[in-house]
Every structure is written in structure tokens, then in C-alpha cells.
Design a protein around this nucleic acid. Structure first.
Lengths: 260, 260
DNA sequence: CCAAAAGTGTTACAAGTACACCCATGT
DNA sequence: ACATGGGTGTACTTGTAACACTTTTGG
């Protein structure tokens, strides 16, 4: 199951972890992207396990909580300066991976005592990240046997409460859609209005009226119409757009208005 | 500074704490109420300190995170089954009360080594609670020298990052106001529309048009008009209202609609 | 009677909803 | 030419904002 090098790396990681990290605290990242008209989430399948999980990490004593989440993103996805937002902290007393952890150690010939600190009950802080599918460079860590993208509306069998975490991240994203523009992080540099609509529909999980979506988006001023058109399809060529970064960031910060 | 009994209780608490609680993790509660036309937050002033802080607590190994928050509410406010909502987790690496804790121990004649676990860097999960001012029965704990209600828009000097936590709780409540009815927890059994409006205005921090507020509230169906009127003021007697609990809870659960 | 709050109505404008219509493109 | 998606427009409904008018009350 483990090569000699990986086994040694795993032992080294486990041996130092109990000193280096804040105990019983982790961060988990729902890394989301948009590909083939689907909102997808990046998942890992750990060595010797059947279920899938979110990429996560621990919080070093000298790190802010957000630093830890950014580190996960950098180490697993090779991405920096990404849209990343904390959305909820999960603290059920049953959040324990003791069995799975000991199981993995035994299978890999590692002394399970080294992993005692990982086998405890963990509180995890959930973050969601929005990334571009093409720019993402997934990097497995030593405990990963497989990884990949999954349609967020059709998840595989998940470990522990990770499907609940994903549900909550999606729910938060849906609410954020109310008051914020979304897309600069998920779409390529240029795109059509139709692409943007498909993104919104995949997030909301329901169809949107074409004409109304178009009007609302154009009125918001975050889009810049380009001269180019997208060709190669058996239909009328749509115009390409790009985000006006200044306007986009401005409307990200605008406060939500209550109607009275 | 400490009586003998309190000193012993404090020592006992500190001695067991490092075993009983998840290390370096706390919950803090912004307990909010409405009184004298102001949105108020309940604060504590610990022994020998000049600044104020939110009531908080630690998470027992056998407790869910939410249980810990509910315990704080019960121990400090004598309240059960209260509206309580997690809103953010604060994890700056600088969240350390080492100096203050050791200072308090020294002043109180307690061995500072007992408080080593409290003096570390803490990650805290923020909750806000909505309570009825009259029903609240504040109970000081052994480390409290003073406590009281403060206008959330005019806070006293706060310890550490607690003013930031309160700001975020208020901001969250303002956003929640968009999609949820608020008031059943904060107002007495019966109230006038004007009372409700003052509550909304104190949360939002800005005036609302009287006529429009009234129409919007009545249209939402969460209010039941009573026969009684409120008398005793030198003006026209307003009708009293109460919340329709069924409708209220229903609209609490309704999902936010995005305009498309 | 009067000041001030309560209850109600009016109007203008913006936003959301549901369509219908023509246009452009590769096959 | 034609099916299909793209771009645009219209009519209807609903929501928001600002404000005016009347009613009721205790002093």
C-alpha cells in the first residue's frame, strides 16, 4: 500500500503533527469549479478507504485560520490569491475518524500510536473556494489514493459528515449569489452570456429565463462586451464578454439593501 | 480580590479545565435584546480588567459545538430554547489572553501555571442569541466583577477582538433581516407596529418609512392583530399585535428567492 | 383645541416575470 | 432551408420610495 518513501513521509508528518498544530481543529475546503455545464467539487479518496472527502488541513500554531485554508488550496491545487470564504464550523461530537485512521496505519505498516492526535474528535472550519477548472493543478498528498471532480448535485459516497459540509457550502453560495457577482473566478477570461447563465443555473439548480437573465446581468455593469464573437457552432454567433474588474470588485463590497 | 471560596472554585475550574475541554477552542455569545428603543448586547467585565468581553465558554469533549453555546446561555442568562445562531469563527493567531490571565491569577493569589491552558492562543466560534430583555436573568460567574447591557452602537472599551465579533454579529443579523422575520424572541408577547419598527431601525441603524414598513409587515402574514389597544400615551391608541407562531416559523424556513 | 403619533391612501418609479419576435449560423 | 440558439422588445405584475391626508388621543 505504501512505498518506503511514502511510509517514512507519513510517519514524519504524524510524528510532528501533534506538536505543530492546534489540537482537534481542522479546515476543510470545498473547492468548486465549473466545467461541462456543471458545478463541480474537488474530492479526495484516501488510501484504503471507500468513501470520498474534502481536501483539508490543520492549523499551525503560528498561522491564522485563513492562512491554513489558503495553505490547503496552495498545496492541493497549486493556486494562490483565490476567492476563499469561510462559511460554517462543524463541531458535532461524533466528528471522529479514529477507526479510519487506525485502519490506514495498520494497512500501511505504521504505528497507530503516532496517529493518536489525528484519531481524536475534530472541529472543522468549512471554507469554499471558487477556482478556474483549467488553472487548477491537483496535487495528491501522501494519503491520497485517488482524486477528481464531481458534480456537486451528484456526489459519490462521502466519509463522515463531508456531504453535509458540501451541502452547506452550496447553500451559502446560493445565498451569496443574491448580493454578489459570481463568475470571475469560475469562468475563463472571455465567455458568453449563455455560459454565465449556465453557471448560475448550475449553482441554483433551476432554469432561469434567458431574456431576463441577460437584462439583469448587463444592467449590473460588471460585464464588458468585446468585439469578438464565438464561432464554430451551428447557430448565431454570440458575443464574448469579460468582467470589468473594477466594477466587479466594487459590487462585491456593496452592502445588501433591505427593502423598506 | 477573591474570597477564599471563589479562589478555591477558580482553582478547581482551572485544574480540571485542561482535561475537560477541547484545547484552544471556545465559543462566544453575543446575547442581544431590545430595551428602551435600543438593541443591546450583554457584556462582562472580568475581575481586575478594564475592558469588557462577551460571555463565552469552552467545549467539553462530549459536547457538540452548539451544546457549548447553549450551555453558556443557560449558565449566564438562565435561558433555554433560545434563538441561537452560529455566524463566524475567529482564528487570528493573535487571539491570546495570556497576559490578562496571568495577571488575574497573580492578583488573586492563584498559581498561574494552573491557567496555562487558558493562556494559549484560542480559536473562538461566534454565536448570536436573541432574548427577551425581561426574561433574562444574568448570572455572574466567578471571574466576573461586573456585567450589564450596552447599546450595540455605542460599545465600551472591549478586550481583544470582541468588538470585531460584535460587529460581525450585527452585520449578520442585518443580513438575516432580509430573509427572515425577527422579533418573536426580542419583543414582549404583545407589541405595536411602532415597537416593531423601532426594533428594525435599531438593528439597521437607520430610519424606515412608517407607512411602507407597516404595509410590508402586515402583508407578510406573521402578525396577528388583537382587539386590545395600547393606552396611556397622549396620542392615538395603537392596536396591539402578536406573532402568528405557525406563520412565523414557516417564513423562517422559506428559502431566499433570487430575482430572475 | 392642539400637538403628535397612528392608520390609511396615492402616485411615481423600479424591478421581476413571462413571453413573443426576429436574427444569424453551420449543416 | 431549417433547426436552434442568440439578441431584443413588450406587456403585465409586483415591489419600493416618498409623501399626503385623515383619525385619535391625553393634556
Amino acid at each position: 500500500m505504501f512505498t518506503k518513501e511514502i511510509k517514512e513521509a507519513a510517519e514524519a508528518f504524524l510524528a510532528q503533527g501533534s506538536k505543530e498544530y492546534v489540537p482537534q481543529l481542522s479546515v476543510d475546503c470545498a473547492i468548486l469549479s465549473f466545467h461541462e455545464d456543471q458545478l463541480k467539487v474537488f474530492l479526495l479518496n484516501p488510501n484504503g478507504q471507500t468513501g470520498w472527502m474534502l481536501p483539508g488541513g490543520y492549523v499551525r500554531h503560528q498561522d491564522n485560520l485563513d492562512d491554513a485554508a489558503n495553505r490547503v488550496l496552495f498545496e492541493r491545487a497549486g493556486l494562490e490569491n483565490i476567492f476563499l470564504k469561510q462559511f460554517h464550523t462543524f463541531g458535532s461530537k461524533d466528528r471522529v475518524l479514529g477507526k479510519e485512521v487506525r485502519d490506514m496505519c495498520v494497512k500501511g505498516g505504521i504505528d497507530p500510536a503516532l496517529a493518536d492526535w489525528v484519531a481524536k474528535r475534530f472541529i472543522t472550519v468549512g471554507y469554499y473556494a471558487l477556482v478556474n477548472y483549467e488553472e487548477m493543478k491537483p496535487k495528491p498528498d501522501i494519503f491520497t489514493q485517488d482524486f477528481g471532480w464531481f458534480d456537486i448535485h451528484h456526489l459519490p459516497e462521502m466519509m463522515a459528515d463531508h456531504s453535509e459540509i458540501i451541502d452547506k457550502s452550496l447553500c451559502t453560495l446560493q445565498k451569496d449569489l443574491l448580493s454578489q457577482p459570481i463568475g470571475m473566478n469560475l469562468l475563463p477570461e472571455t465567455f458568453t452570456i449563455s455560459d454565465l447563465q449556465k453557471l448560475y443555473e448550475s449553482i441554483l439548480g433551476r432554469p432561469i429565463d434567458r431574456g431576463n437573465f441577460r437584462k439583469k446581468m448587463l444592467k449590473s455593469n460588471v460585464l464588458k462586451k468585446l468585439e469578438e464573437q464565438k464561432t464554430g457552432q451551428p447557430h448565431r454567433s454570440p458575443y464574448l464578454y469579460t468582467f470589468d474588474e473594477t466594477q466587479y470588485k466594487q459590487s462585491l463590497q456593496e452592502e445588501v439593501k433591505v427593502g423598506f
